[in-house]
Design a protein around this nucleic acid. Structure first.
Length: 1097
RNA sequence: GCCCGGGUGGUGGAAUGGUAUACACGAUGGACUUAAAAUCCAUUGAUCGAAAGGUCAUGCGGGUUCGACUCCCGCCUCGGGCACCA
């Protein structure tokens, strides 16, 4: 008997496919087209990877099936042949890259052909073919002419040892991929493409295509649109600083901006001023409330001017407001003297009495405002608002919680304010340090760093509070405005920074309905349980050797009242309790007289509460050295951050501590606050413009010429392509220029505009340039000729039934996830651009790919990536030689889900080979029968129908593994029948026919061979795809599962389609079930026809 | 840290609310053979039992349901992508 010999069979049929040009297609308006695309390979010297084989086999199966379903299928292939490995090879061996490329593509072509893929080889494209890159250059010129290409100086990755600019992907953890030297930053002029102009469309149009959801998600994330607002923060200068050391005594009045006294006095006064600020009188408190929220003028309180502390001052207008208590004559005299001195400095003084302020506030304010209006703004002395900074934020709703401003080291504010910054040396040093850090170092540093810019302050536009300004490299110069408003309570990064530099934290968004508290252990678990609160943990706190047990509780908002009642009742004297919840952070203090005071922590009273906590704490545990400086921060860090996620969180919620906006929800407050402070809504993207220059030889030359007189000029379209000149040396030059710059003959040209002396651009294009449009090239490529042809484009890219919103494009594009954010995004952008300028027909829509799927990697044995260094590379040639191409195809489809990474298993390959052998032996045997008896075999018939259904559906859903498994089951059933009735198996010729047709996309060579052996007419791959009979798909007999309380107790064979009554009757006859039901009452019966009957007892 | 996938026998995996472990590999035993390979047959989640049969198993812990690998909540873990993007 004949033996399965794949080597012979496969060569034979590949010849047939090739000579008959079976898979070459033409535009044909009468036939429905189907354009199926796989990513064209980079023809590396290593040859085809088994991973290529897997993804190409999958799409080959789909193409073959569609062809059998009557579609005019375009399934093309080509070479993405520009690339570094080839250039490196050229450098090393002095062989021209064209030669190496030819050698590699020949290998790839041979390998692909040996696998029997149904590519249309007449449309093969090669990106390095000048005829091809003429169009790549043409596209660049259109970008240039439409203002989408521009030159910009940006930092590139520079390898000091290879003296070459590296692409990001050539940098492996901060080192040069080739020589291992540490990569540096170098500023260089680069061609950039304005992809950001298309950012919105690239997001929006994802709704119109049928990509895998994860691909859409990755693209959206990569583009990273954030909707926010730009807010303006005024910058004020001249905050009276402590005089620097060494300036000694003496008046500072002559130094602009520092109208203060000698250092010693200043420090004493400053201490006093802080005390006064903390203990304002009633009148001062009331007036301050009004003044600090004044939107037009900025006031300070307890400000030091010369030797005096004035109560309130508006520095930009030089207006001092003094609040007096009872007036004695002696005081009056001193006040007069003081007024005189201040007036000498140019201040105007307004005085009010306590009762005036308390009883007639409106009058006082009116008076102040009208006085302010008559005064001119101060100039040159640095007391006024000097400048402003814009920040970008998506969380304007948290503006009241903004307690400092951070700018990137590169921000111009620093340069502009240089004269006003009093710690300039430190700031300068920090900026220089961070400039020298590489991206890697910046990423690696765990702790945020930064430095306060002293001498200038920002004014929070919402509450007019003065806040400090920092420079820190956690803020990036090239995103948003390069400056941020820091809200430590609602941003992790800002919190981290605030913690490190001890900055104020104010919670302005309440958190959900959760309430948490750490309770002094005088209340038992049982007492909490009574009011429905569980103690989640008991913690022992060590205070100077004393162990104190506390209970952590968490409950919902509706329990607050009961909780607070319990706490107030049970708390011992001299203790406080705080709880954190949506209604705020609430403190209850019980003092010596058992008087309970209750405080809601706010931006107004935190210092007071801080002090109270400290005092209470000390009364209890005298020796403890706990000195809180900020009660918010203390809470956020208390007991392993128990409160942290309620205080410090980034979710939306209900506003608090936000003046008139308190109580609003974030979404609403966001818009209102933007309006309130006069901000402007704005949008930012993570996506950056595309760096299009490479300093390499082996790429498409950028077709531009620089003329001293005319500037950058496009090469005339008739002069395209600008071919790569032949060079002897591919080594890059010392100065970071591309190797092309050394070829003066090529570089020097006449200016296309004025005809004068000019120089060519010597940078080349990146790898993605050629792959931007290759799917268009396929539609009109013919034997190495590329005649851009809108008719062909229109036919192959026309909208098909599959498109969800009527757009056209490639019908099905499969590729790796690693190309989702680069190639896929770039080519979508370029296609949109071509569509916009009318370079492709409008009728096909502005999306190039209608459907995009992805394949998983083939890993080496043991589950690690295949690599030469690990020695676990599987060469498809070896597999084809040892097992055959059909076996390789079947195995790679069967190994697991198509989109999942699966390790190669050489032992597993044998199973696929055995499967094919089994089919071969079976069919050969059957072919020798004179007549195949067609006695009826209902079970097998039904199985065939079900298999047709399953295989058809599985191919469409790329579930190739289960499709192969279904074929195996069918073949096993055939074998079983052969064994049962070897002389006259109940198999019809039509059954064999169906089997071979189903097999043919998977194992095309074997299917054709057996098709011939069975003497069927024509070729299997040209037959119609089998159809199934819906009626026959249903099995006649089913196995009914009988469950009792959901557990399987019996399986009964039954006719399909039984009614519940019939089923129950059938079940009641079962002996097994009878014993289970003995003496039990049946409560309920659930019946799922043809599947399960569940008796509940 | 964030986003996206996974976690099921010795192994690759199947089953998207209804028989968990299809299909295949491997392993063990057997047939054929001088022998080996190939092929064919049988067994193959664990456990108790002589058997009939029972019990337990889909990363862990809860929940919904007559019934959960599948749905919901909380965690652990592996892989991939992004990474201070305000």
């Amino acid at each position: 008997m004949k033996k399965y010999n794949p080597q012979k069979i496969e060569k034979k049929w590949q010849k047939v496919f090739e000579t008959k040009k079976l898979f070459n297609v033409k535009s044909n308006a009468k036939k429905k087209k189907e354009y199926i695309l796989v990513e064209f390979p980079y023809p590396s010297g290593d040859g085809l990877h088994v991973g290529h084989c897997r993804s190409y086999t999958g799409l080959d199966i789909i193409s073959r099936k569609k062809r059998m379903q009557g579609k005019n299928v375009l399934f093309p292939i080509g070479w993405d042949a520009f690339g570094l490995p080839t250039e490196n090879y050229a450098i090393k061996h002095g062989i021209h890259p064209t030669v190496a490329t030819k050698k590699n593509t020949d290998t790839f072509r041979r390998q692909l052909k040996s696998l029997g893929f149904s590519f249309d080889w007449s449309r093969e494209v090669n990106t390095t073919d000048p005829e091809y890159y003429k169009w790549t250059q043409w596209i660049f010129l259109q970008l240039f002419k439409n203002g989408l290409a521009y030159k910009d100086k940006i930092a590139i990755n520079w390898c000091p040892s290879c003296k070459i600019g590296l692409a990001n992907e050539e940098v492996v953890s901060g080192k040069c991929e080739r020589c291992g030297a540490t990569v540096e930053k170098k500023e260089k002029e680069q061609w950039m493409i304005k992809i950001t102009k298309y950012a919105d469309r690239l997001i929006k149009d994802l709704d119109n295509v049928n990509y895998l959801e994860k691909i859409k998600i990755q693209q959206r994330d990569w583009i990273g649109r954030s909707d926010g607002a730009e807010l303006e923060f005024k910058i004020s200068c001249g905050l009276p600083p402590a005089p620097p050391k060494g300036r000694g005594d003496g008046l500072w009045g002559d130094v602009p901006g520092y109208l203060t006294t000698d250092a010693k006095t200043w420090r004493l006064l400053q201490e006093e001023a802080v005390k006064m600020r903390k203990n304002p009188t009633k009148a001062e408190k009331k007036l301050w409330e009004k003044l600090r929220t004044n939107r037009d003028y900025h006031f300070r309180r307890q400000q030091i001017i010369d030797k005096f502390i004035v109560d309130f001052v508006c520095l930009s207008k030089k207006l001092v407001i003094e609040v007096d208590g009872d007036i004695h004559d002696s005081k009056k005299e001193r006040d007069q003297e003081r007024t005189k001195i201040l007036e000498n400095f140019g201040f105007k003084i307004l005085r009010f009495r306590n009762e005036e302020i308390l009883n007639n506030t409106d009058y006082v304010i009116k008076k102040i405002v009208s006085t302010l209006e008559t005064l001119p703004f101060g100039k040159g002395e640095g007391w006024a608002v000097e400048d402003s900074v814009k920040v970008f934020t998506t969380r304007a709703d948290t503006l009241f919680g903004c307690t400092f401003l951070v700018v990137a080291p590169e921000h111009d504010l620093i340069k502009k304010m240089k004269d006003k910054i009093i710690n300039w040396q430190e700031v300068k040093q920090y900026i220089e340090e961070s400039r020298n850090k590489s991206d890697l170092q910046r990423q690696d540093q765990k702790e945020k760093t930064g430095i306060e810019v002293k001498g200038i302050k920002a004014i929070n536009p919402a509450n007019k509070r003065e806040i400090p300004i920092f420079v820190a490299d956690y803020v990036m110069a090239n995103y948003g405005t390069g400056a941020i408003m820091a809200v430590p309570a609602h941003d992790e990064r800002d919190f981290e920074f605030a913690k490190k530099y001890n900055l104020e934290i104010i919670r302005v968004i309440a958190n959900k309905e959760k309430v948490r508290s750490i309770v002094w252990r005088d209340i038992s678990k049982e007492e909490f349980a009574k009011i429905g609160i569980d103690v989640i943990e008991e913690v022992e706190i060590n205070h100077n050797g004393k162990k104190v047990v506390m209970s952590k509780v968490e409950f919902l908002e509706n329990k607050i009242e009961e909780f607070e009642k319990l706490i107030r009742e049970k708390m011992p004297i001299g203790v406080w309790n705080e709880y954190v919840g949506p209604s705020g952070i609430i403190f209850n203090f019980k003092d010596k007289d058992e008087k309970i005071s209750r405080h809601i922590l706010s931006s107004e009273n935190w210092e007071e509460i801080d002090k109270l906590c400290y005092e209470f704490f000390h009364e209890k545990l005298v020796d403890n050295n706990w000195k809180p400086k900020n009660v918010w921060k203390w809470l956020a860090e208390a007991e392993n951050s128990f409160y942290k996620d309620i205080i410090i969180h980034s979710e939306y919620g209900i506003l608090e501590n936000s003046e008139n906006f308190s109580g609003m929800i974030s979404q609403e407050a966001r818009d209102k606050i933007i309006e309130f402070v006069g901000g402007k809504k704005s949008v930012n993207y993570k996506l950056r413009d595309w760096v299009f220059s490479r300093q390499h030889y082996w790429g498409e030359p950028i077709p531009l010429v620089f003329c001293e007189k005319c500037g950058w000029q496009a090469v005339l379209e008739k002069d395209l392509p600008v071919e790569l000149p032949k060079v002897k040396n591919y080594q890059p030059t010392d100065n970071g220029e591309s190797p092309l710059s050394a070829i003066t003959k090529w570089v020097n040209v006449a200016c296309p505009e004025c005809g004068g002396a000019a120089r060519r651009e010597t940078d080349t294009m990146p790898n993605w340039a050629g792959s931007n449009w290759y799917f268009l090239a396929y539609t009109f490529a013919k034997n190495g000729k590329y005649n851009w042809n809108n008719k062909d484009i229109e036919y192959w890219m026309a909208p098909a039934l599959r498109s969800p919103k009527g757009g056209g494009g490639v019908d099905w594009y499969n590729g790796g996830m690693e190309h989702t954010t680069l190639h896929l995004l770039y080519s979508r952008f370029i296609f949109k651009f071509l569509w916009d300028i009318g370079a492709v027909p409008k009728s096909i829509g502005s999306e190039p790919y209608m459907k995009r799927t992805s394949h998983g990697m083939v890993l080496g044995e043991g589950g690690i990536k295949m690599s030469k260094s690990k020695g676990n590379v599987i060469n498809p040639d070896t597999v084809v030689k040892d097992f055959g191409a059909d076996t390789l195809r079947i195995y790679e489809m069967f190994m697991g889900p198509f989109d999942q990474a699966i390790p190669w298993d050489t032992k597993g390959v044998i199973g696929s080979r055995r499967f094919l052998e089994r089919i071969y032996n079976l069919v050969i045997k059957l072919s020798s029968y004179q007549v195949i008896k067609s006695e009826k075999n209902d079970e097998l018939e039904s199985l065939i129908q079900r298999t047709i259904k399953k295989v058809s559906e599985d191919i469409e859903e790329m579930r190739f593994n289960t499709a192969v498994s279904a074929l195996m089951i069918l073949v096993n059933a055939f074998s079983e029948e052969m064994q049962k009735n070897p002389a006259s198996p109940r198999l019809r010729r039509a059954s064999i026919r169906d089997l071979l047709l189903l097999l043919s996309p998977f194992a095309p060579h074997l299917a054709e061979e057996l098709w011939q052996e069975m003497k069927f007419k024509g070729l299997a791959c040209q037959q119609s795809w089998p159809k199934f009979d819906e009626k026959l798909v249903v099995e006649e007999k089913v196995l009914l599962i009988v469950q009792i309380n959901g557990k399987v107790r019996d399986k009964i064979e039954a006719k399909s389609g039984l009614s519940q009554k019939e089923a129950e009757e059938l079940v009641s006859n079962s002996e097994k079930i009878k014993t289970w039901l003995e003496g039990k009452a049946v409560r309920k019966v659930i019946y799922v026809p043809n599947k399960v009957i569940n008796i509940v007892i």
